[in-house]
């Protein structure tokens, strides 16, 4: 009993760190993007200010119960992934509630948030939200397939569905990372990451020039605050998941920070210089290239 409370406290602390790191990472990404455009960009502390402001809005209107629940589900999805994701390999405190089948659970939680969002956004009643969420769901489904294939390939390779064990198998030097031991699955995974993090060319869910701004069109005030909080957490844990799966995990916070930053940067790196696909193009793309690679990755290990 005592153990679990202490564990919970550590997890909460971990969540706090991840949240702040997520915001800092988001801000630095925006600053880097600004640099490409020869701007200086937002102050590095801007996300915190935005968040305070959002929670400090005096009024907020609701479109019904599901409208409330949407952001909560979404946060649930993000925190859910966090809860079952080991952050630092080898650390009792920072491995959260990682267990044998956590990989499957995480794949599920990725969808959970999206579905919750769909319900909430649908309740908002704005056609842009509906169009956005339709696009989001269809794209996410196709994004999940290559990722799942890559995970299956990994599961076959390492013979486990526990992230901790997958990380453990990659210890002992760079050459043991999945990146080198199973490059095909890594490519499939990294391509699907582009879709999961929703930067261009796969950012049509929130496409501000078409369906401003997709699902969160009607969200504001604290609702948006919750979504932003979740966003910060989610970006880090997504990156951390890929770090654990393909890049040997992290044994300390410094490694964690560098690796998640670089993995997240990958999607920014591609995104800044590309326009976005239409939804059917993006679906077709995911069903062509990453899927093929993913299938190849599985075939190689059967």
């Amino acid at each position: 009993m005592n153990d679990i409370i202490i564990k919970l406290l550590w997890t909460l602390l971990g969540l706090f760190i991840v949240l702040n790191w997520g915001m800092l990472m988001g801000a630095s990404m925006r600053k880097i993007v600004a640099r490409v455009a020869h701007r200086r960009g937002i102050p590095i502390y801007q996300p915190w200010l935005d968040l305070i402001k959002l929670y400090a809005k005096r009024t907020s209107i609701s479109h019904g119960v599901m409208f409330y629940l949407g952001p909560v589900f979404r946060l649930g999805g993000g925190v859910g992934i966090f809860l079952f994701l080991p952050l630092i390999y080898g650390s009792e405190y920072w491995s959260n509630f990682s267990w044998a089948g956590d990989l499957v659970l995480i794949l599920y939680f990725q969808f959970f948030g999206m579905l919750g969002m769909a319900l909430g956004a649908g309740e908002g009643g704005h056609p842009n939200s509906v169009i956005g969420i339709t696009r989001g769901l269809s794209q996410f489904t196709t994004v999940e397939i290559p990722l799942t294939l890559a995970v299956i390939s990994l599961a076959l390779q390492y013979n486990t569905l526990s992230i901790t064990e997958i990380v453990a198998a990659q210890q002992g030097g760079v050459q043991n990372w999945t990146l080198f031991t199973n490059p095909v699955a890594t490519v499939a995974g990294m391509l699907s990451l582009l879709g999961a993090l929703r930067h261009a060319p796969f950012n049509l869910v929130k496409a501000p020039n078409e369906v401003p701004i997709g699902p969160p069109t009607e969200y504001h005030s604290a609702f948006l605050g919750v979504l932003r909080t979740n966003g910060a957490v989610l970006h880090v844990v997504e990156a951390a998941l890929f770090m654990n799966l393909f890049f040997g995990g992290a044994t300390n916070w410094a490694e964690f920070i560098i690796k998640t930053f670089l993995i997240y940067f990958w999607s920014v790196f591609v995104g800044v210089v590309h326009p976005r696909f239409r939804i059917e193009q993006s679906v077709v793309w995911f069903l062509k290239i990453p899927l093929a690679i993913g299938v190849l990755a599985v075939i190689l290990y059967i």
């Binding site: 640099r35 490409v36 020869h38 701007r39 200086r40 790196f269």
Partner: peptide, 16 residues
């Protein structure tokens, strides 16, 4: 070629 845009990151900002 689109990725060549990234070389701008090393140039100075134009901000007044």
């Amino acid at each position: 070629t689109p990725f060549t845009a990234w070389k701008n990151v090393f140039e100075d900002s134009y901000v007044v």
